[in-house]
């Protein structure tokens, strides 16, 4: 019996390779919002701008995450990924008069933390919406517009744990994803950062008692807590602030104003709030006020 469970665990880990699909109802496998492509692109963008080029070509490559439920997640059988990042990306794609639901026109390319900048620099993707924190160092090599979301890092522990926040974890091992800003923040707070390949692996290790806590954006933690209802809980105040933005090529600075324009419109017309409600609402996160956009450089 135990062997069967172990075998199942191994098999599941393999099959979904770091995704949360194995954990059952991920709360984000609903259809996304149906966003219609605009049809006003003739003359809307300045000639020679990247937007005009993309609208003319009718095709776009969008870099997103596949492994973060609620933000950017793609199950093995899904055509189009789902999550808040994806919903925002759809608004941008639609504004270029491209149908977001048509996978022959929109290529949802998986980007991981390691390859977002290289993909933008090489032109493999045109825009990145992959829980991509805006940082000064990144802006040296790529363009970043937004933010379209502000998140803060919290701590996820076992439901019966008496840990109340990151300050209780000084000198203790805390799990996060290798190469992520979250991991650096954990270390900065005096905990010993332990890097996994995905947040679901961290959750697994918190559940089996190897690590007392994991930490990353509160939204992600809320998703994980919802999937393991009654076993895990999010604790403590946010101890970092991440501005999640849209990445684009530094060679095409004109994209910044355009992105900010589409974002502001979504803040105003309620589509931003709808997207948030649909994707992150089920994890128990209240829809906040839209963030303030940073000026383009």
């Amino acid at each position: 019996m135990r062997w069967r469970k172990a075998f199942a665990a191994t098999a599941a880990t393999l099959v979904v390779a770091g995704s949360l699909a194995a954990c059952g109802d991920a709360g984000n496998d609903k259809e996304g919002r149906d966003v219609k492509a605009k049809s006003d692109c003739d003359g809307k963008f300045e000639d020679g701008s990247r937007m005009a080029e993309l609208a003319d070509a009718g095709k776009i490559n969008v870099g997103v995450k596949y492994d973060q439920p609620g933000l950017g997640f793609k199950g093995a059988t899904d055509d189009v990924p789902s999550g808040f990042d994806i919903e925002i990306a759809k608004l941008l794609v639609a504004d270029l008069c491209i149908d977001p639901a048509d996978t022959s026109k929109v290529n949802w390319e998986e980007t991981i933390s390691d390859n977002r900048e290289p993909f933008l620099e090489s032109g493999k993707v045109d825009i990145v919406l992959a829980s991509y924190s805006i940082t000064e160092d990144r802006q040296k090599v790529v363009g970043q517009a937004g933010p379209y979301m502000v998140t803060g890092q919290q701590v996820l522990v076992k439901a019966d744990s008496d840990i109340t926040g990151i300050d209780d974890l000084k000198g203790k091992e805390v799990c996060s994803v290798t190469g992520s800003t979250s991991l650096e923040n954990v270390k900065a707070k005096g905990a010993k950062g332990v890097g996994a390949d995905s947040y679901s692996e961290c959750a697994e290790k918190v559940l089996d008692g190897t690590y007392r806590a994991m930490s990353t954006d509160g939204t992600i933690l809320a998703g994980l807590a919802a999937q393991n209802e009654g076993q895990l809980k999010v604790v403590g105040d946010q101890f970092s602030e991440e501005n999640i933005g849209v990445g684009f090529s530094k060679d095409r600075p004109e994209m910044c104003e355009w992105i900010d324009g589409v974002l502001s419109k979504s803040f105003e017309d309620g589509s931003w709030a709808d997207a948030f409600e649909l994707t992150l609402g089920p994890s128990g996160v209240d829809t906040p006020e839209p963030p303030t956009l940073q000026p383009c450089k």
């Binding site: 933390s113 390691d114 900048e117 290289p118 940082t135 160092d137 990144r138 040296k140 090599v141 790529v142 290798t178 190469g179 992520s180 800003t181 991991l183 650096e184 890097g195």
Partner: peptide
């Protein structure tokens, strides 16, 4: 991987 994430420009 931690360093390349923090210092993308010095990859």
């Amino acid at each position: 991987r931690g360093l390349t994430n923090d210092y993308s420009s010095e990859r």
